[in-house]
Amino acid sequence: MNTQAIRAIYIYEMKRFFRTLLQSFISPVISTSLYFVVFGAAIGSRIDTVEGVSYGTFIVPGLIMLSVMTQATSNASFAIYFPKFIGTIYELLSAPVNFLEITIGYVGAAATKALFIGTVILATAALFVDLHIEHPLAMVAFLVMTCVSFALLGFIIGIWARNFEQLQLIPLLIITPLVFLGGSFYSVTMLPPIWQAITHFNPVLYLISGFRWSFFGMADVPIGLSLMAIALFTGLCVGAIWLIFRTGWRIRQ
């Protein structure tokens, strides 16, 4: 295992992040505050509680998930797309590294950034609403797993993309709708039965549900199912990346 390479990629990527730290910090704070003003204060004041939790508090897990998923995806996809785009990928291809080391380096850095943003949002949320986290350890575990799995997905997108439009396409067309429709801002039990059934095909539902369980102790789907879903998703992504590097698909002539 070339641990030096993993370290070097990770540090290099994190440096990029620290250069724009202020921006990385401010934008989630502002967007979270806006969500709380709009959904929490304005609309939420007309809704009493969802499953016994005030609406403002109820949306916190979904809000964190929404940002973490999109950030992890876009960070990782950009991190690998950019070297491909400007040609510096030659160095990765000629270095004594295997797919696992490259993936750990890039995905690790992207997941760390997403985790940082998730934490910032959680802290901002705590300023607006009363937060009591039922299962803190499970909460951290779910957060980390989501960061990692979506960074993996982003990594695949970055390798697949041939131009900047494609890079934005998947997050925009697939991830954002899935996250919004996965119960970020409502409980699935609030939907008509037919939509409830359809929603169960949305993989994001399982993640948000599990994450929400760690906050409030209640979930749309059983917690075991959530864990299985995230494990399956992560496994699929790792498998896909392994296959990509083995065949050199879209990275090696």
Binding site: N2, Q4, A5, R7, A8, I9, I11, Y12, K15, R19, F82, P83, I86, G87, T88, Y90, E91, L92, S94, A95, P96, V97
Partner: peptide, 30 residues
């Protein structure tokens, strides 16, 4: 092996020092 490619391919916003550190690490050197 060390390789200096024909095309100039460098990340525009990086610094020489950082990019050299990355190269060293990638090739497994402390």
């Amino acid at each position: 092996i060390g390789l200096v490619p024909q095309e100039i391919t460098l990340e525009p916003f990086e610094t020489p020092l950082n990019t050299c550190r990355l190269s060293r690490g990638l090739f497994g050197k402390a």
